[in-house]
Design a protein around this nucleic acid. Sequence first.
DNA 1: ACTCGATGAGACACCACTGTCTCATTTGAG
DNA 2: CTCAAATGAGACAGTGGTGTCTCATCGAGT
Lengths: 182, 182
Amino acid sequence: MAVDREQVLRAAASLLMRKSSATMDEVARAAGISRATLNRQFAGRDALVRALEELGIAECEAAAERAAVDDGPAPDAVRRLVLELEPAAGLLAFLYSENQLFEGEELNEGWARLDARMVALFRRGQEAGEFRIDLSPVWLTEALYGLLVSAAWAICEGRVAPKDFSSNVTELLLGGAVRREK
Amino acid sequence: MAVDREQVLRAAASLLMRKSSATMDEVARAAGISRATLNRQFAGRDALVRALEELGIAECEAAAERAAVDDGPAPDAVRRLVLELEPAAGLLAFLYSENQLFEGEELNEGWARLDARMVALFRRGQEAGEFRIDLSPVWLTEALYGLLVSAAWAICEGRVAPKDFSSNVTELLLGGAVRREK
DNA sequence: ACTCGATGAGACACCACTGTCTCATTTGAG
DNA sequence: CTCAAATGAGACAGTGGTGTCTCATCGAGT
């Protein structure tokens, strides 16, 4: 009987990704519960969004863990990371558009941890001579987020095939659009 | 005396990029006019957003025109395009997060025109052997938008230097992150 | 069968934002 | 200067979403 909190969060994320202005009533309906129950679990819209933020951070950190981003060649680590991040891309896309979170000058320190991890990954690749040094690790991190969001959106809109998600992001991020002579 | 309509739109875009949920009153204040005047020029928030959309499309098309995206090598055309698109990146970032526009299943045909133009550019590059063919033109177009928005955001947040805007976007989109042997 | 906790449905007041109105003031042209 | 148009400030009700409440129902464990 007890509502599965995480399942509610996933339904909310799935809906809010497509319609960020969805009503609490719509969210509840999408999760298959009543508005009353939704409010019992999350005290207000803010709390729901915060919970989604926490979930997003947790999923990203879990993905980074599974991908073992600190091991092996950096390009391979990026490939593994994107692969593991794919299931969280939709949630990430929602949080990305929710700039309200960062408006309150009080951004969750989880993002800082994640950013630091990503930046370290790209910096490691640069120091190993695998990544070019004229693109800052910070920008590469931002670009990774941007590409993940773009890919999630494009798939959601049906513009690109879901199966191409990770290869699209990885190949563009690492190799770029220009044809390379081997 | 007559309020400069375009100036109002720019102020609105500048504010809404940072706070997409800004009140009409906040928008008016940011534009240096009263709410009454704002409502006299744009009949409601929808009209304002639509006007911003039109402005964004017009700026992108003007940029594509100035960049002469159909002339010369495709990679150079992309470089010129990004360069010309830089002033519109902020507005683009706002519109990008305003998925409401596309929610109403009635997307402005201007976007379709722009998309077609971008897709044609990337396809041209592929057919000339300049771009790799394992990344679809549609995805490259989406990625270009995503990188533009990411760069605009990163600069707005102070994470990357404004002067690196075009090189960051262009170099990553065309060359990727991996170091290349010349 | 009983009971207790959780849920759904609905009602309710509250609040912020919106759109519109009025009126005094300002601006610019003739 | 004079006047008409535009603007700013404020008031006003309407609206949609929110948070809270009550009450009936449901379901699982005893």
